[in-house]
Amino acid sequence: MSESWPQWEIFVRSEAGLAHKHVGSLHAADARMALENARDLYTRRNEGVSIWVVESTDVHAIDPSEAEAFFEPSQDKQYRHPTFYHVPDGVKHL
């Protein structure tokens, strides 16, 4: 078996005003080819107006075993959400 082409993560902006969204991955020899292949593979039905490609090894993610420590501290700070506050009857524009 010959060497493999690197894997790329593909992000597509479906229309102006929306963020790029991860849609999957593919293989390509370099970034330019990854963009071409992404166009063919992930936008065959007019799904995109913009594409990002990122080599998969360049994606850094949180270790799931640390997820609790990472995310739970924000759970008890309900005062960050507007629903935490009581709005007296009749008060508008708050």
């Binding site: 082409w5 593919l26 293989h27 390509a28 071409e36 292949n37 063919d40 593979l41 065959r44």
Partner: peptide, 11 residues
């Protein structure tokens, strides 16, 4: 030669 190219050639 590579599956991505099947898609491209079809296009």
């Amino acid at each position: 030669p590579v599956m991505e190219e099947d898609v491209a050639l079809a296009n």
